[in-house]
Amino acid sequence: MAKLRTRKHRVVLNRSVGGDVGINTLLIIMGAFMFLPMLYVVLQSLKPFDELFVYPPRFYVVRPTLQNFSDLFTLMSDSWVPFSRYIFNTVLISVLGTFGNLVLSSMCAYAISKINFPGRGWMFEMIIKSLMFNTTVSSITNFITMTLLGWIDTYLAIIVPAFCSTLGLFLMKQFMDSSVSDAVLESARLDGASEFYTFLNIAMPMVKPAWLTLIVYSFQGLWNSGASIYIYSEQLKTFNYAISQIISGGVARAGASAASTVLMMIVPITVFVITQSNIIETMSTSGMKD
C-alpha cells in the first residue's frame, strides 16, 4: 500500500522521511560544490591586496574593498586599444548576431512546424543531426570559406555564422508544434491572411517564451565568445578576450582578474534570472522523438 505523509501542510505520496533527509543532504553537498567556487570569485574580487596573499589562504574577506574594480579600470585605460572598444565589439557582435539568429530561425521554425512542404522532414532531421556535433568540426573548412568570402578579420566572420546556430531553431520549432494550434492558423488562412501575416501576427506572439529563450541562448554564446581564429586585429577582439589577457597577467593581477570575472558573469546571470520562467516553459517542449 502506498504511504501518505504530510509535508508542510501538503499531503505527499510515497515520500519517506529518510529519503527526504538523504536527498536534501546530497542537494546541499552538490550545491556547495557548485556554489562555493562562484562565491570564492566574488570574495576574491573584494579582497584588498594583502588579503589576497595571506598564509594560510583565507576563504572569506575581512576588510572588503572595491579597490580591485578601480584597479581593473586603471588597467583598462592603460591598454593599447581602448577598453571601450572591446566592450563595443562584444555588444555589437552579440546584438547583431542574436537579432539575425532570431529572425532567420523563427521564419524557418514556423515553416517547418506549420507548413506541409516537401523536404521539411529531412530538413528537420538535418537540424537535429547538427545538434550532435559541435562547431570544432567545421572550424577548419570554415576558415577556407571565410578566406574565399574575404571575411577574415571582419565582424562578419563572427556575426553571420551565428545567424544559423541550430539549437534556438530546434527549441522554437518544438515549442510551435505544441503551443500554436493549427486550427487558428487554418482559419486565418481561410480569411485570406497571407502566410507571412499569420507567421508574424498570429504565431510569433504565441511563442514569446521560445523567442526569449532563443535570444538568451544566442546572446550568452556570443557574449562569452573569446578569441577567434578568424580575427587578428586587436581592435576587433572581444571583451572576453581582453579579460582573459588580464587574467593571464598572473599573480600580481589576482585581484583585478577576479574583479573582471565578476563583471563578466553579472550579465548572463542577470539575463537568466529575468527570463528563467520563460526558458523553463520553452524547455518543457524540448523533447525529441526517437
Partner: peptide
C-alpha cells in the same frame, strides 16, 4: 512561401555547417 521562409536560414546553414562537413 515556405521555401522563402526557410531559405535564408537554410542557405547559411548549408554554407557554414553542411558543406564544411
Amino acid at each position: 512561401v515556405a521555401y522563402a521562409l526557410i531559405a535564408p536560414f537554410m542557405i547559411l546553414f548549408f554554407i557554414f555547417t553542411v558543406i564544411p562537413v
